[in-house]
Design a protein around this nucleic acid. Sequence first.
DNA 1: CGATACCCTACTCGGCAAATAGGTTAAACA
DNA 2: TGTTTAACCTATTTGCCGAGTAGGGTATCG
Lengths: 164, 164
Amino acid sequence: MKLSTKGRYAVMAMVDLTRSSEGSPVALADIAQRQEISLSYLEQLFAKLRKGGLVRSVRGPGGGYLLAHGADGTRISDIILAVDEPIKATRCHTGSPAGCHSDKSRCLTHDLWEELGNQIHLYLSSVSLADVCEKRVLGTSGVIGPQQHQPKAINPFPPAVAAQ
Amino acid sequence: MKLSTKGRYAVMAMVDLTRSSEGSPVALADIAQRQEISLSYLEQLFAKLRKGGLVRSVRGPGGGYLLAHGADGTRISDIILAVDEPIKATRCHTGSPAGCHSDKSRCLTHDLWEELGNQIHLYLSSVSLADVCEKRVLGTSGVIGPQQHQPKAINPFPPAVAAQ
DNA sequence: CGATACCCTACTCGGCAAATAGGTTAAACA
DNA sequence: TGTTTAACCTATTTGCCGAGTAGGGTATCG
């Protein structure tokens, strides 16, 4: 799971799409104007979102984009995964042939970044477009560290895609 | 809170320092060799770690660096905050004079990124260097989304520094 | 002394996100 | 049937910043 401005732009655009849409398609030109993102850049983002199955497109006059699964069925994590192709966050040392360190087992920080990726993915997959639009984001929430061994918290969405 | 390879390098180096140290200072040259990071680059990182009060330095022959607060008293979040100066993750639109959108109130995704930053910081501040060294990182953990309004989970460390 | 290793400051380099440019294709409408 | 609209491509360019380099200086020990 990679966090870049590209992913943020995609989420902004999707939120805009969610709010602007009332059944009829929304043209990218409109989103571009409202969100102050270049049209061409938006087109690239939506090409990926379409390939990811997050939006449907309608061509021709009056055309535009529609959410494929509605505001409640679209998770933020899906948007980011569709746009930012998931470069493995745990690269350790790209150059070295053997994974992580040469000797020893695996580099010690490996698990840390992996778990951090899980945390990020878990949070973003618990937030839908509808949540963002209705400001249901700043919930009272907490992350459990390694000290206390609590039972796994209930996650409303199944972990379909593993965080990378 | 910004996540880059720079921060990862810093954590790797700090983990190495934790493991290598037995009361006596550890030279950066040793860390550089073990972790395959350039010495000069490490020096820059440790300069920031020192300013952040995370390490103490001993000059002269036999000198090196020591953890200022021990393996248990050093949080991963502190390392990253010391090294990656916290560019505001919630930049929305850098160019526009008024924060976020021109009209309306605030851009809708603002809260989302802010809360994500909180989540990341919360997790990383719950992990100490000792945890990483002893592989106490992959705990059963979960993030609570906006749907279920559960009580705030217990965080072993007070939120001294707000996530940026 | 002189070796060690911390401590600065400035500069270079490469990769990649971000943006630009210039097209083609499908659908609606007159 | 032709024109307009807007999706749909595929390069190419640009600018920033992480990552590494260079070359000093300064405290401390034997």
